Amino acid sequence: VLMMAWMNRASIEETLAEGQVCYWSRSRQTYWRKGESSGHRQRLISMKLDCDGDTLLLLVDQQGPACHTNRRDCFFYEITPDRVILTSNPDSGLNAS
């Protein structure tokens, strides 16, 4: 599952302590615990830091779709030299085409 989101120190600490992934919502200026309203929670399996120390990679156990569009992940547009291709439909659940 591919998804990008923001975290700050407090959301990282909560995620590590609770095992339930918590992000920082820049648009809402508040914490966002993935799946709070949808039930599509993310349980932390591992958290890794890149060589520059500025990017985290989380491996999660995703329950249901990760994207708010009800797709498996948030990266469903493929860009080619001549067009943009939609690679999955809403409600396709966990099946990407």
Score class of each variant (00 low, 15 high):
residue 18 E to H: 03
residue 78 E to I: 01
residue 93 G to R: 02
residue 75 F to D: 11
residue 84 V to K: 08
residue 10 A to E: 15
residue 22 C to G: 03
residue 58 L to R: 03
residue 92 S to D: 14
residue 1 V to K: 11
residue 84 V to Y: 01
residue 3 M to D: 15
residue 2 L to M: 09
residue 76 F to E: 13
residue 73 D to M: 07
residue 94 L to M: 14
residue 76 F to I: 07
residue 13 E to W: 02
residue 65 P to E: 02
residue 68 H to Y: 04
residue 86 L to I: 11
residue 72 R to L: 12
residue 58 L to E: 06
residue 78 E to Y: 09
residue 70 N to V: 00
residue 34 K to S: 03
residue 93 G to T: 08
residue 34 K to T: 00
residue 85 I to Y: 03
residue 27 S to T: 14
residue 77 Y to V: 15
residue 30 T to F: 05
residue 39 G to E: 02
residue 94 L to W: 07
residue 65 P to N: 01
residue 91 D to A: 08
residue 57 L to R: 12
residue 81 P to W: 04
residue 15 T to L: 02
residue 25 S to A: 12
residue 81 P to T: 07
residue 9 R to L: 10
residue 28 R to I: 02
residue 10 A to L: 12
residue 54 D to V: 02
residue 12 I to C: 06
residue 10 A to Q: 14
residue 36 E to Y: 03
residue 72 R to S: 09
residue 44 L to W: 03
residue 78 E to K: 13
residue 92 S to G: 15
residue 37 S to H: 11
residue 63 Q to Y: 11
residue 54 D to K: 05
residue 29 Q to L: 05
residue 70 N to G: 05
residue 50 D to V: 03
residue 55 T to F: 00
residue 89 N to I: 04
residue 20 Q to S: 11
residue 67 C to G: 03
residue 16 L to C: 12
residue 80 T to V: 09
residue 60 V to S: 00
residue 71 R to G: 02
residue 36 E to V: 05
residue 86 L to G: 11
residue 63 Q to S: 09
residue 29 Q to S: 12
residue 7 M to D: 08
residue 96 A to I: 13
residue 41 R to V: 00
residue 57 L to D: 12
residue 61 D to H: 10
residue 31 Y to Q: 11
residue 8 N to K: 06
residue 54 D to L: 03
residue 23 Y to I: 01
residue 2 L to G: 04
residue 81 P to C: 10
residue 24 W to M: 10
residue 86 L to E: 15
residue 6 W to N: 13
residue 24 W to L: 10
residue 77 Y to C: 11
residue 40 H to G: 01
residue 60 V to L: 00
residue 33 R to G: 08
residue 13 E to F: 01
residue 95 N to I: 15
residue 22 C to D: 12
residue 79 I to A: 13
residue 14 E to A: 13
residue 23 Y to F: 14
residue 89 N to K: 07
residue 31 Y to I: 07
residue 88 S to M: 13
residue 94 L to I: 09
residue 13 E to Y: 01
residue 20 Q to P: 09
residue 35 G to H: 00
residue 64 G to D: 02
residue 90 P to K: 07
residue 32 W to Q: 06
residue 17 A to G: 10
residue 49 L to Y: 06
residue 72 R to I: 06
residue 90 P to Y: 03
residue 76 F to M: 05
residue 87 T to M: 14
residue 7 M to F: 12
residue 95 N to V: 15
residue 19 G to Y: 00
residue 5 A to N: 12
residue 21 V to A: 03
residue 78 E to G: 10
residue 67 C to F: 04
residue 1 V to N: 13
residue 73 D to Q: 07
residue 48 K to P: 01
residue 53 G to Q: 08
residue 79 I to Q: 10
residue 47 M to Q: 04
residue 84 V to A: 13
residue 43 R to E: 14
residue 67 C to V: 06
residue 69 T to V: 06
residue 62 Q to E: 06
residue 74 C to R: 04
residue 12 I to P: 04
residue 63 Q to N: 13
residue 1 V to P: 14
residue 57 L to N: 10
residue 6 W to L: 14
residue 92 S to W: 01
residue 30 T to G: 13
residue 76 F to A: 10
residue 57 L to M: 15
residue 85 I to N: 09
